[in-house]
Design a protein around this nucleic acid. Structure first.
Lengths: 242, 242
DNA sequence: CCTTGACCCTGACGTAACGTAAGGGTGTAT
DNA sequence: ATACACCCTTACGTTACGTCAGGGTCAAGG
């Protein structure tokens, strides 16, 4: 059983914040001394760690509470998606770093802000929230995707990579060829069906991410061969009317 | 010359935010139409990009203004440090991702929060702010480090790596051997002299960063051979009384 | 010329997630 | 017995915006 002070030192979370979380009902201490001192046990600490992960993803405290308290809450599923979101965040940071390096090297007069774009992250987060029942859309989601098993989800990821392999086979044709454009439409439909509603806007953002150096590009090029990611990105740009 | 709407769509910054920045004097439009509509040119956009980089590092707007308006402001120097800070942030994210993966795999009952630690980033940011004159400490900093040229700074980085090479030579001895402890003291002194005041607390945080997978460990192991980063980390832990 | 719809303006107020300070108990070491 | 490091609650302050409300602007169409 740890006091606020100890927890604060261990976790880096301020005492005031612990009190605040308690007042919100977000994180109650396991017990209190007679004098009213808060005492935290390992269960509380584990919850705090979950909270900190969500906070890292800029989830509002109210939603964190809703998610953690939801009867549907599944720790493992939550972690999976949190990891995915953290990866997206890292990729975004990498693109920003690359931008800053560009700015430093050349005077970089072409005004580029794509790197700051976070539409994809937000869209994904939105989807995760719906799934988690942080919002009332949960039931709707359940009806659409509830029956999916872990294997089905994994096979979706494989199918996704398969799409890029198919892109790879076309990569010597021009980006505005009918074949490339058809594949782009397929990609968009696939994302909408399996992950989140993919508007042209979001699709374009995705294209930018694919082209930037990072894990995305690496994985796509692995699936479809060197240069596939760039090709997909160009095809998407054409598809979205540049 | 772009209107608020155009700038907003280009950059992802909301119109309200642009108006707010204007009211703060942080980002004034290049001109106004007769009707009072804000009009932004490329100079303004470049400034906005700088602002967004600083915001990415969680600098308060008041400090961003102070830095950008400082007579000492040097775009290139700023970018260099921003990149460094963004890298630190990325490393932190990577550690958090690794933690989340650990949590998922094993139930992970050992309460570990090191990954969330951001002392090193804050310390580095503090140093950067002092250098940039965002705070009144600028003059003091100038006196201590003002005369440093770019080459001198680069040689400092080399010297830094040299320290790890020396650590590498000791890595078969125990972490609590006098030699390892002496090297640790040297490392601490070096950081204090060249980067920021390195307390035991911060040194320990650094040690944790070195050991975690990421660029830090890669670079250190490159300088001193496989396993050097881990060795340094252990030596630091001993030095700081674990 | 007039209207409509998409923009733009300036207040003014609301909000989230804390920080800070005030006023006052607690616990144990000397 | 008092010093000192903790702890509590209550209340107000702060940052960086979001969200109206009330009211001009401007190009296109009838």
């Amino acid at each position: 059983m740890k006091t606020v002070n100890e927890v604060s030192k261990l976790t880096g979370v301020s005492i005031r914040t612990l009190q605040y979380y308690d007042s919100l009902g977000l994180l109650a201490p396991a017990a209190r001394t007679e004098a009213g001192y808060r005492l935290y046990d390992d269960t509380a600490l584990e919850r705090l760690r979950q909270i900190m992960l969500f906070r890292e993803l800029d989830f509002p405290l109210s939603e964190i509470k809703a998610i953690l308290d939801s009867p549907h809450f599944d720790r493992n599923d939550a972690l999976t998606r949190q990891i995915e979101l953290l990866r997206l965040k890292k990729e975004r940071l990498e693109r920003i770093i690359a931008l800053a390096e560009d700015m430093k090297q050349k005077g970089d007069t072409d005004m580029d802000f794509e790197a700051f774009d976070s539409k994809v992250i937000e869209e994904y987060a939105q989807r995760a929230k719906e799934k988690w029942g942080g919002t009332p859309q949960y039931e709707e989601y359940e009806q659409k995707h509830g029956g999916e098993t872990a294997e089905e989800q994994k096979s979706a990821a494989d199918e996704f990579m398969e799409l890029f392999a198919q892109f790879g086979a076309l990569k010597d044709k021009p980006a505005d060829s009918p074949e490339a454009q058809e594949m782009t439409a397929k990609l968009k439909a696939f994302i909408t069906e399996h992950y989140y509603t993919c508007t042209d806007e979001i699709l374009y953002s995705l294209g930018q991410m694919y082209a930037a150096e990072g894990e995305f590009r690496t994985n796509i090029d692995r699936a479809g061969g060197e240069g596939t990611a760039g090709f997909v990105s160009r095809a998407i740009a054409v598809y979205c009317g540049k």
